Amino acid sequence: MHISLVTGPQERAAAEEIRLRVFVGEQGVPPELELDEHDADADHFLARLEGRPVGTARMLRRDGCGVLGRLAVLPETRGTGLGAALVRAVEQRAREAGLRSVELHAQTAVRAFYERLGYEAYGEEDIEAGIPHIWMRKPL
């Protein structure tokens, strides 16, 4: 497995394709909510397995914190550690940028995944794109 920062249009297109397949195709998120205005300002990550794009994530910077989002791994590669590796890549990028923590708006169905990686929930559950979410944070 190899994870890199997205630097060119082909990698960007591959990352968007993964997001559309997972969030729009599998979960029914409207495409206009998935690909949004924040993409232009984010750091994007692409995970490859045997050279094939299979996962992605993005990180926004807000008030001295990294905001991890749009973490998506293709179904056939789930359970391989790819998601955790993407989270660690985002955390490393946040550390390099001097950010003090990483926050995320997790789907409640995957809350335990983030808890295993050291994230703690805060605030109340809410609904985003018709899916229950909770805010989580990890100090760096």
Rank of each mutant, 00 (worst) to 15 (best):
L49T: 07
G130W: 01
L86N: 00
G98Q: 12
A109V: 07
F113D: 10
R93M: 00
L82K: 01
E37G: 10
H2Q: 15
E96G: 03
E76C: 01
H133T: 10
V87Y: 12
R61L: 09
R61Y: 04
L35Y: 04
R58L: 12
G130E: 11
A72E: 01
L46K: 05
L71A: 05
D63P: 06
G118M: 10
E96N: 04
E125P: 14
G28S: 06
A85Y: 06
E125T: 14
H44V: 07
V102C: 04
E115P: 07
I3D: 10
E32Q: 05
A13Q: 10
V73S: 00
L140G: 15
M1I: 11
V90W: 02
T80N: 01
R62M: 00
A14R: 11
P139I: 06
A89T: 05
M59Q: 07
I127F: 10
E32D: 10
A97H: 01
T56V: 13
G123L: 03
Q27I: 03
R61M: 11
G28M: 02
A89F: 14
L86H: 11
D41K: 08
R21Y: 07
A57H: 14
L74D: 03
R95W: 04
R52D: 11
A85N: 04
A84S: 09
A15F: 06
M59K: 13
A97V: 00
L140I: 14
G98N: 09
V22Y: 02
R78M: 07
A72P: 09
G79Q: 10
P30A: 09
P75R: 07
R58C: 06
A106C: 07
R61P: 05
G25A: 13
H38Q: 11
E91G: 11
E50P: 07
G79S: 03
R70E: 02
E11Q: 15
I127Y: 01
V102N: 00
P139C: 14
A40T: 08
G130T: 01
A40N: 08
G123A: 03
A40G: 03
L82H: 02
V110C: 04
F113A: 07
R137Q: 13
L68S: 04
T7F: 04
R19Q: 05
E37S: 12
Y122F: 12
Q10A: 15
I3W: 06
P75Y: 03
I127S: 00
P9H: 09
S101H: 01
V22D: 15
A94F: 05
G55V: 15
M59L: 15
A109I: 00
T80I: 02
L82S: 05
H133W: 06
A57R: 08
D39T: 03
Q92I: 00
P53V: 15
L86I: 01
A112S: 00
P30G: 01
G98K: 03
H105A: 09
E125I: 03
